[in-house]
């Protein structure tokens, strides 16, 4: 299975998926930590993947999503954005709505 298929499989396995540096308990980057805080504040149940321990997925994601940095948040397999966009959406109450809708 090539990397793009693996990514598709990971994205279809859960409604809310976060690719980050490190793990929610041990984030390895301030932006990834912020993303997990925001998801926590939204009460989101999500699957997270540590791209530091999977360089293939890390490289594959850059092509898959045309987004070069991490974290990357996906709702129902669609890229929402990185930390910047999550903060912006959270500020105007959009992130909470999007996540509630995605979790169904």
């Amino acid at each position: 299975m090539d990397t793009q298929d693996k990514i598709r499989e990971q994205l279809s396995a859960d409604k809310v998926v976060l690719y980050m540096k490190g793990t929610p308990k041990f984030p390895q980057c301030g932006f990834s930590a912020k993303a997990t805080q925001l998801l926590g504040a939204c009460g989101a149940k999500y699957t997270s993947y540590d791209i530091l321990s999977d360089p293939e997925i890390r490289q594959g994601l850059k092509e898959y999503s045309n987004w070069p940095t991490f974290p990357q948040l996906y709702l129902n397999g669609e890229l929402v954005g990185g930390c910047d966009i999550m903060i912006e959406l959270f500020k105007n109450g959009e992130l909470q709505k999007l996540i509630a809708k995605a979790m169904g």
Binding site: N66, P68, G81, I85
Partner: peptide, 18 residues
């Protein structure tokens, strides 16, 4: 959208981003 706008800027920065 905000996402598309950021992607446009990242495109201009090529492989420097990340």
């Amino acid at each position: 959208s905000m996402l598309q706008r950021h992607q446009i800027v990242y495109q201009a920065l090529g492989d420097k981003m990340g």
